[in-house]
Amino acid sequence: MTVTDTPPRARIGRFMAANPLVPLILLLIALLGLLEAMNPGIINRLWLANAIKIAIPLAMLAACQTLTMLTGGIDLSAGTAATIAAYVTATLSPLIGVPAAVAVAVACAALIGLVNGFGVAICRVHPLIMTLGTGLIATGCLLVYQRFVISTGTHIPDFLVWLGTGRTVGLPNGLVLFIPFAVLLIWGQRRTGFGRLLYALGSNENAARLSGVRGWQVYLSLYSLSGIIAGITGLLYLGLVKTPSLSLALPLDLPSVAAAVVGGTSIFGGRGGYAGTIVGALILTVLTTMLTLLHMPEGARRILFGLIILAVTALYIRLTDRT
């Protein structure tokens, strides 16, 4: 990929700018190559299936970040909403049955999103503050709930275990949920009015307003949708981890932001998309595996992880931003 004279480099730059996914996929392939070089034979069908299985909840939670970031926002309560949905499902299933428990769980997550939307859209609170606040409040509510719910034991619905950990012909069953989800999102962000408005609000809120867009409607719907997606992610993650806890999906919160940013979605809004986020989530998953294989102390591993994310993001912006 070394180019000596400028015209080909400019051409590559233009190509990258027009196809922002290409450098991401190249990076992913390079990382896989590196991993294989470090530990020959590691990449086989089983490993791939496992990596995809782990990447799916991350990619789904990163959908919350991608969608809100397109408008220049963020959803820091997504991890909490996912955790609550998982915990409620596990504890209510023995009491009221699986379908009702799942419905209540997703409704709780949706409520968190609705409150976020209300704060951002009506009260004009900055999304960072608003979602941080509701995340903390919801965590508190979960603690209260935990003390009041009579410990009748937990039950993890079978279909969630099947979805979270099962494999069919070598492929993780999670794809049954994830592939339609991803297709819907990638298609919807471009080809529905709602998707267009996310980009419009993130590019220039005032211009959108002058074109007749009522921003509050979009923000309210967006954050509610984000809550629902987080709730569904929580269910899937419950099936993967199989032990409900009060901090189940919280460790995914910041990686989900990182996946969206590495995937090329601008935190200032207006640019990016879900396809990049999926690749971003895969890159983060491969990176985590690599760093685990290095047998480093936890501290050094985290420092390296942070540095790599910064480097990848900086490089990616240089490659694709041609102004």
């Binding site: 009015g193 408005l197 590019s203 220039n204």
Partner: peptide
């Protein structure tokens, strides 16, 4: 004030067409 600078000509022109709730 009026344009979505990082978006395409098409998206800029079509913006009012999707603004209303029932066009989402």
């Amino acid at each position: 004030q009026a344009l979505l600078m990082p978006r395409s000509v098409r998206e800029n022109i079509a913006l009012p067409l999707v603004a209303e709730l029932r066009k989402w």
